[in-house]
């Protein structure tokens, strides 16, 4: 057993969707190998409504420990304790993770009919706030990622929109 490794958890989330391609990708030996060689010790998968159940590993033999669940009301706790998050491209998950300042790989679901989610993931990847992958390229992205290259995401502000609405009615700005 590799006792020199401190616990580093990777959390995978598909939200309320069904995204088996992502669950299958993180369940593959390729991805598990890349995560382990990057120093991660635990993999927890939130698999949502999908039908592909990943294999569980205890990690006692000195390899990546893998566990999964379908839904949990405490996703926020997993996000907080994770060292890396691999998420579907829903804006809810993306901004929740960015607000926590955690490294994030967004995996775009290429099976969706109207795939506008790619736009947001690519825009944020261009600005170096996160990494963007597809289920097929996930292991390469993990292999090539440099966490130090990530730029913290400046949080948005809804006050300017409220001011715009206020000004329309002639209300003062507070």
């Amino acid at each position: 057993m590799d006792s020199g490794k401190s616990k580093k958890m990777v959390f995978v989330t598909v939200g309320t969707t069904c995204f088996d391609a992502l669950v299958k990708a993180v369940d593959s030996p390729h991805v598990r190998h890349e995560l382990w060689s990057k120093g991660y010790t635990h993999l927890v998968i939130q698999m949502g409504r999908g039908s592909h159940f990943p294999s569980k590993f205890s990690g006692e033999d000195g390899s990546l420990a893998v566990d999964y669940f379908t839904f949990s009301p405490s996703i926020a706790d997993y996000l907080k304790s994770a060292s890396l998050i691999i998420s579907h491209a829903g804006s809810g998950s993306i901004f929740e993770t960015l607000r926590l300042g955690k490294p994030l790989i967004v995996v775009v679901n290429e099976d969706l009919m109207d795939n506008h989610q790619r736009e947001l993931a690519e825009e944020l990847a261009d600005k170096k706030h996160l990494f963007c992958a597809s289920p097929q390229t996930l292991h390469q992205i993990i292999n090539g990622m440099d966490l130090d290259s990530l730029v913290p995401y400046p949080p948005g502000d809804s006050v300017p929109v409220a001011k715009l609405i206020n000004r329309f009615f002639g209300f003062p700005d507070n």
Partner: peptide
């Protein structure tokens, strides 16, 4: 989902009396 999160963050900063 994300739409609701965005909307509630706007509502949060609106003046509740007005």
């Amino acid at each position: 989902g994300g739409h609701t999160a965005e909307m509630l963050s706007i509502v949060n900063v609106l003046n509740k009396e007005r």
